[in-house]
Amino acid sequence: MTPLRRLLLLTLAATLLPLTTAAAEPTFKRGVNISHWMAQHFPGRYATPDRFDAEDAAWIAAHGYDHVRIPIDGRILISLEGNLIAELLEPLDEALTWCQDQNLGVIVDMHYLPGNEFLNDAADNALWTDPALRAAAASLWRQIATKYREHGPWLRFELLNEAVAPANEDLNILNQLLVDAIREVDADRVLYVSSNRWGQFQTVPDLRLFDDPNVHYALHTYEPFFFTHQSTPWSDLKDIPPGDVPFPGSYTVASDSPLAADVIADHGSRTMQLDLAFVQNHYAPVIAWAKEHNVNVVITEFGVYRAADRASTLNWIRANVELCEEAGFGWTVWDYMGGFAIRDAEGNPTAVHEGLFPEK
Rank of each mutant, 00 (worst) to 15 (best):
L8R: 12
L19T: 02
E25P: 05
F28V: 01
V32H: 04
S35N: 12
S35L: 06
S35C: 04
H36P: 00
Q40N: 15
F42L: 14
A47M: 05
P49N: 03
A57M: 08
I60L: 04
G74L: 03
I76A: 02
I85L: 08
A86P: 03
E94P: 04
A95F: 02
Q102N: 14
I107G: 02
L113E: 07
L119K: 10
A123E: 15
L127E: 07
W128L: 03
L133D: 02
S139C: 10
H151R: 15
L155Y: 01
E158R: 01
E158Y: 03
P166S: 15
A167S: 05
D170P: 03
N172C: 01
Q176K: 14
S194Q: 14
R197S: 14
L207V: 08
D211C: 08
D212M: 04
H216E: 09
F225I: 15
F227V: 12
T228E: 07
H229Y: 14
I240K: 02
G243Q: 09
V245K: 10
A265T: 13
G268V: 06
G268Y: 11
M272A: 13
D275C: 06
F278I: 05
A290P: 04
I299V: 15
S312H: 00
L314P: 00
W316M: 11
R318M: 02
L323H: 05
E326V: 10
G338F: 09
A345D: 04
E346T: 14
A351M: 09
H353F: 03
F357L: 08
